[in-house]
C-alpha cells in the first residue's frame, strides 16, 4: 500500500507543479513525469499493455509535441499577462478540496462498489479481445488517425504565391 501512495504522491506533485509552473517548458516536463507515474501505476495494477502504450505515447510522443510547440511559440509566454495569484491559490484550494473529498469520496465509492458485478469467469486474453470482440474499435482508431493527419495537413498547407499577393 505504501508503494501505491508513493506513486500517487508523485502523480499529484507532477500535476501541481505542471499547473503552477511559470515556464511552459517546465510544465511540459512535469507532464512527462506525471505520465511516467501513471505508467508505473498501470504496471503495478497488472496492466502491462496499457502501461507500455502510456509510456511510449504519453510520456514520449506527447512530451515531444509539447516541447516542440513551446519552442515554436516561446516568445509569447512573457507577453500574456496572467494573474499569478490564481496559480498560487491552487495549493491552498487543493488542501481544502483534499479535506472535503476525504470525507465524502471514499464513503460514496465504498457504497458504489457493492453494486459492481464481479466477473467470476476467466478473462479472455487481450489479443482476442482486441481483434475479435472489439474489432470495430480498430476502424475507429484508424479513422481518428486519418482525421488527425488531414487536420494537420490542412492547417499547414502550402499556399501558392499568386493566391495571397506574394505573401506566404
Amino acid at each position: 500500500m505504501t508503494l501505491y501512495l508513493l506513486i500517487y504522491f508523485i502523480i499529484i506533485m507532477g500535476a501541481v507543479v505542471a499547473v503552477i509552473s511559470k515556464k511552459l517548458i517546465n510544465s511540459a516536463i512535469m507532464l512527462a513525469l506525471l505520465s511516467i507515474g501513471v505508467s508505473i501505476l498501470l504496471f503495478a495494477y497488472n496492466a502491462p499493455w496499457a502501461a507500455v502504450f502510456e509510456l511510449s505515447v504519453c510520456a514520449g510522443l506527447i512530451t515531444v509535441l509539447f516541447v516542440s510547440a513551446v519552442s515554436l511559440v516561446k516568445h509569447d509566454e512573457e507577453n500574456i499577462k496572467e494573474n499569478r495569484v490564481k496559480y498560487v491559490l491552487l495549493p491552498l484550494l487543493l488542501i481544502g478540496f483534499i479535506i472535503s473529498a476525504s470525507i465524502i469520496v471514499p464513503e460514496y465509492f465504498s457504497k458504489l462498489q457493492i453494486f459492481s458485478t464481479y466477473n467470476t469467469q476467466k478473462e479472455e486474453p487481450i489479443g482476442k479481445l482486441i481483434w475479435l470482440y472489439r474489432g470495430v474499435d480498430i476502424i475507429g482508431q484508424l479513422t481518428l488517425l486519418a482525421s488527425s493527419v488531414f487536420v494537420i495537413k490542412h492547417i499547414f498547407f502550402k499556399r501558392k504565391e499568386a493566391d495571397n499577393g506574394g505573401k506566404i
Partner: peptide, 23 residues
C-alpha cells in the same frame, strides 16, 4: 476494471483513450 475483474477489457479501452488523447 480491477474492481470487476475485467482488466484486459479495461486495458483495451485505455489503448483507445490514449490514441484519442494523442490525436
Amino acid at each position: 476494471g480491477l474492481a470487476t475483474n475485467n482488466i484486459n477489457l479495461a486495458q483495451n479501452i485505455i489503448i483507445v483513450m490514449i490514441l484519442v488523447e494523442a490525436v
